[in-house]
């Protein structure tokens, strides 16, 4: 009996999807990224996808380290440029599921231009953005997501810049699937990941996640558990809410849910349709750089 228990313990439930040879990871206790990674791993298992055909691309920052821990073809790129890299990978291999997993500073500040343009093109990739309201890897600087008046190491007297509303940005740029959850809503987050990955087109999930080491400490909001309790008490689930109405203010209520789920031809659909229209039978439907045709 004792041996049995010991053997059971040796096997991590997520071993199939995590690089166990890289554990322990670098994230702080109570960080929300780990929970988010678990939700993605569970989503991938439940989708029963061929894991050989799933790739993860990350940029730089705390969340940027996700690519390094997931046992998938995984790419840790430059700051802000995970999306263009993922775009090239997707065009070369449209048969693969390409998931960008990065943070708010990486995707929305330095990488903001790529985010809006890839959403505009409706490129068939999934973008997961862990939003902890702050640049955490570099020590807690203000971000374009930091709520007004929140303190950071570079907004010591409180942030005075209007933050981005990420679901609104994604939806107005052209995303076909947009959802927001917190690291507390692990089952709903898992469902959102499953829907986003299954969606054809640019799908976006924002994950509000606790950073107790920096955001919570600089703003005296308590520890990780206090933040989870805050999410519990202040999240309002409102599917189909207009993204215009879901700004996040400092310690305000957080509207979560699925806001956009529409159908629209993808980048490659449009490319193929246009070329077919122009060239007729002379055009061979593009399904990948090395002839990975979908049909």
């Amino acid at each position: 009996m004792i041996t049995e228990v010991a053997q059971q313990k040796q096997e991590h439930p997520m071993e199939k999807l995590l690089r166990m040879d890289r554990i322990p990871h670098i994230w702080c206790p109570t960080c929300g990224i780990g929970t988010t990674v678990t939700a993605l791993a569970v989503a991938l298992e439940q989708l029963e996808l061929d894991l050989d055909n799933v790739a993860v691309v990350s940029g730089i920052g705390c969340t940027g380290r996700v690519a390094g821990y997931m046992k998938l073809d995984s790419f840790h790129t430059t700051h802000g440029r995970a999306i263009p890299f993922a775009f090239g990978l997707h065009v070369a291999r449209p048969d693969m599921k390409v998931i960008v997993f990065s943070g708010d500073g990486d995707l929305i500040s330095i990488g903001g231009n790529h985010f809006i343009h890839t959403a505009r093109r409706n490129v068939d990739i999934t973008v997961i953005c862990v939003n902890n309201f702050i640049y955490a890897m570099t020590g807690g600087q203000v971000a374009p997501t930091t709520p007004l008046t929140a303190k950071s190491s570079t907004s010591p007297y409180g942030n005075y810049e209007h933050p981005f509303n990420l679901p609104l940005l994604a939806a107005s740029s052209g995303a076909v699937y947009v959802a927001r959850w917190t690291a507390l809503h692990i089952r709903r987050l898992t469902t959102a990941f499953k829907e986003a990955i299954s969606k054809r087109g640019f799908s976006f999930v924002e994950v509000i996640a606790p950073c107790s080491t920096l955001y919570a400490r600089l703003n005296k909001l308590g520890d990780g558990l206090d933040l989870m309790k805050f999410y519990h008490d202040n999240s309002i689930i409102k599917h189909g809410a207009d993204p215009k109405d879901i700004d996040i203010e400092y310690q305000s209520k957080i509207t979560v849910g699925k806001f956009v789920d529409i159908e629209k031809p993808t980048f490659l659909d449009c490319l193929n349709n246009r070329n077919k229209e122009v060239f007729g039978d002379k055009y061979k439907i593009y399904g990948g750089g090395n002839g990975h045709n979908r049909d």
């Binding site: 691309v57 790419f75 790129t77 430059t78 802000g80 440029r81 999306i83 263009p84 890299f85 993922a86 775009f87 090239g88 990978l89 997707h90 065009v91 070369a92 291999r93 693969m96 231009n113 790529h114 343009h117 490319l271 070329n275 122009v278 060239f279 002379k282 055009y283 061979k284 593009y286 750089g289 090395n290 002839g291």
Partner: peptide, 29 residues
């Protein structure tokens, strides 16, 4: 490109151009 099986994309900027060709190269093209 359309008739030789290639994909041309006018990217949003040069940062994206260079990033995308790296991704495509790792994708096997």
């Amino acid at each position: 490109f359309p008739l030789v099986g290639g994909v041309f994309v006018q990217m949003e900027d040069e940062l994206a151009s260079m990033g995308a060709i790296l991704g495509a190269a790792w994708g096997g093209v």
